[in-house]
């Protein structure tokens, strides 16, 4: 069995070698096949909380661009992004997670903001500097909610 002394550098190295290591306070994650296989928090998100984050205009504000029939009680669904009806049937959880975390890993030219990223941004407004749009927990909640859209 490897000793603790050999394990620590190994863990550090694996973090550095991860597909996309995010700096600062963000949890680092690994991109595999256009997806992030592991939960950012190490546990499954809460779909009910995710729906709230999804709708909240100061958080996900997802309806600004995407239409969701199940949420028709909320007015004004945008149309510039694809409808998310049935999105869970088209994508697996890791792909949904990467799409929320940083859609530019899939399409570098997309208008969609990266919801979990702080590096490489230009002239961020003071109040938002160094902060991702959503926390790791909120990302996982939104992913859990997206998985209900069948």
């Amino acid at each position: 069995m490897p000793s603790l002394k050999t394990l620590i550098p190994a863990i550090a190295a694996s973090v550095l070698l991860a597909g996309t290591a995010t700096a600062g306070d963000l949890v680092s994650y690994k991109v595999v096949d256009y997806g992030i296989p592991s939960s950012l928090t190490g546990k499954a998100g809460d779909a009910a909380a995710g729906e709230k984050t999804f709708v909240n205009r100061k958080l996900g504000n997802c309806l600004a661009c995407h239409q969701v029939t199940k949420l028709s009680a909320h007015p004004f669904h945008g149309e510039i992004g694809p409808s998310l009806d049935g999105v869970a049937e088209r994508y697996e959880e890791p792909q949904l997670r990467l799409q929320v975390v940083n859609a530019k890993e899939i399409n570098p030219d997309t208008i969609m903001p990266a919801f979990y990223r702080t590096e490489g941004l230009h002239r961020v407004l003071k109040n938002f500097k160094g902060k991702p749009v959503l926390t790791a927990e909120q990302v996982e909640d939104v992913v859990a909610y997206l998985k209900t859209l069948k």
Binding site: G78, I80, K104, P113, L121, V124, V133
Partner: peptide
């Protein structure tokens, strides 16, 4: 910005679209 968009993302790529 934090939302990481250029003018062109709304006004060139998505003009006519509903946000």
């Amino acid at each position: 910005g934090q939302l990481d968009m250029a003018c062109k993302h709304c006004h060139e790529d998505n003009a006519g679209g509903i946000i």
